Simulated scan of single mutants.
Amino acid sequence: MVRENIHQVTVLGSGSMGHGITEVAAMAGYDVTMRDIESDIVEEGYENIRWSLEKLADSDRLDESVDEIMARIETAVDLGESVADADIVIEAVPEEMALKQDVFDELDDHASEGAILASNTSSLSITDIASVTDRPADVVGLHFFNPPVKMELVEVIYGAETADETAERAYEFVEDIGKTPIYVRKDVHRFVVNNVLGPFVDESHWMVSRDEASIREIDAAMVHQRGYPMGPFELMDMTGLDVTYHVRKAGDIEIPPLMEQRVENENYGRKTGKGHYDYENGDGPDYEEGDGEGFETLRIDAMIVNAAAWLIGNDVATADAVDTGAKLGLGFPEGPCTFGDETGLETILETLEGLHEEYGDERYEPEPYLRELVADGRTGKAAGAGFYEY
């Protein structure tokens, strides 16, 4: 059905996300116009696509030749011309609200009636972005993960006025380009995946800030005992502590002292040569499997399950969407809802209640939906029902 109403795709931005999304759409058979503000910038993005496709061809991962795929991509500088015939426009400019609103304000004047206007953002409000247009029903979030060519997940995010038809068409488009979409049905800060990731990072930082564990101890335990692809501190060094810090500031989330200290000292991670680990004079993440012996990973996992309960209880996403997002977007060994059900939700609840009693911090307060499940006897797999039915 999606092919009947989406033929022409326009991507605004030719940076790593923009040219990656363009490449994915062209590989799926769509004609794509990639636009940026200067011809040399957009041409650089175009050549980056060719380089990526040639790498894929060398690995025998293309169904067509590089030239056939590249022939479906056009470049542009003029925004009006680039979007005039587009059935879906995907904005992929830097993560700044004012900049995105400027783009959507201009889009509103030039995009055809009925076109889907999508923003690729990891945390900014779709409602606020749509507010500068006269057609907020046509605006939706499409959060591709980096790099788009490799990452399977895309979050499809409703703004306050996004029409179901818009979200459904966007969801079908994502499926048609070979990705796995999940609905984010409310425009909450950090959407689904980054809300699940939050406690993985934050609780670890709080524990080290309180001298309750070491960085290497937590990273080793979460990787070698639990099977996460990276420890939380190793992950933050790769992502950039400054990025993490500013996302929390924007969401008015209390920031652990350890994170504050690293950012104040401009120790952002790999890109500055030093973060939680030393990348200039040291070996980077140098934890070993034995470093995590004796560390109780359930404390961090319980906080992640509680975040999932918040998302579900507030009708932001389904349990399946949360688990799919965590596995495909973050590489978690299993989704938090599956983990909670297998561990026993009564155990998760007791852990959170114990933390809340010990520290009194609001973030340890068990979510009402989690309490409701346990009160109803839906404590997980052993009981025959929890987040899921068994």
Rank of each mutant, 00 (worst) to 15 (best):
P333L: 07
G114K: 05
G380P: 09
G20H: 11
W310V: 03
V193L: 11
I218D: 07
V247G: 05
T75S: 02
L258I: 11
E152D: 09
I182C: 05
E357H: 12
V83I: 10
L56V: 01
H205K: 14
Y388K: 01
E264W: 09
G45T: 00
E47M: 12
T351S: 11
G290R: 10
Q8Y: 09
G284E: 09
V184G: 03
Y171E: 01
D291G: 08
T297D: 12
R50N: 03
N314K: 09
T162L: 09
V192T: 15
T121S: 13
G344W: 05
L235T: 07
F295S: 10
A118S: 02
V156F: 04
E342C: 11
V149G: 11
A375V: 03
Q261C: 08
G20K: 04
E161Y: 10
H19Y: 05
L345Y: 03
Y277E: 04
V89R: 14
L373A: 11
G340C: 05
K100N: 13
T338R: 15
R72L: 00
L142M: 08
G240L: 00
A137M: 09
E367C: 14
G29P: 02
G141F: 05
A170C: 10
P94S: 10
G45I: 00
V154F: 13
D187R: 10
R371P: 04
A118Y: 07
V208M: 04
E346K: 14
V193M: 05
E81G: 13
A213M: 00
I129E: 13
H19G: 05
R299S: 08
E264P: 06
H110K: 11
G313M: 10
L79R: 10
A302L: 07
M259D: 05
M34Q: 10
R35H: 06
L107C: 12
F387V: 05
D134V: 01
I88P: 13
H19T: 02
T318Q: 06
K271N: 03
N306R: 08
E165T: 12
L99T: 13
